[in-house]
């Protein structure tokens, strides 16, 4: 079964609930981390929720010299195995969309993992601008 993650920018109102949901879902040691999703205004009151596109031929996967990034075939997400990561930030530099980033709070490299199949951002989005669906 295949899933896809979809954003509908026209529905996004820039409330940033997704950011909160993401940061809290990925909390560690009772401390929320940095969000993996950012609604960005491209003109007045018009937003695009920017999140990892889970590219087919992903630059982050290619840039990792330690094979820490692998696609989860079930969820479709490219997941970062934090135990294999050495924090060289090659993926951060390589991702053309800036969707691999450094979490300063937990001192880790992070990227969207679609919450292993139950993305919190989708659940919390009040306007249904974020969709995770079967294809």
């Amino acid at each position: 079964m295949k899933f896809r993650y979809k954003v509908i920018p026209s529905l996004c109102i820039g409330c940033r609930t997704c950011e909160l949901a993401c940061a809290f879902t990925h909390a560690k040691d009772k401390k929320p981390g940095r969000s993996r999703i950012y609604p960005i205004a491209y003109k007045k009151d018009k937003y695009v929720p920017v999140v990892c596109l889970q590219c087919d031929d992903a630059a982050c996967v290619k840039s990792c010299l330690f094979d820490a990034l692998k696609r989860n075939e079930e969820t479709g997400a490219i997941e970062l195995n934090i135990d294999r990561c050495v924090k060289c930030e090659a993926c951060v530099a390589a991702c053309p969309f800036g969707c691999a980033l450094v979490d300063d709070v937990h001192d880790e490299v992070i990227k969207c993992d679609i919450c292993e199949g139950t993305p919190a951002c989708v659940q919390f989005c009040p306007t249904k601008a974020l969709v995770y669906e079967k294809i």
Partner: peptide
Amino acid sequence: RMELAFKMGGLVDGAEEVAI
């Protein structure tokens, strides 16, 4: 990320939804 937002915003103004 900003670049992506602007690029997608441009596309959005033409279409209703953007699938990944």
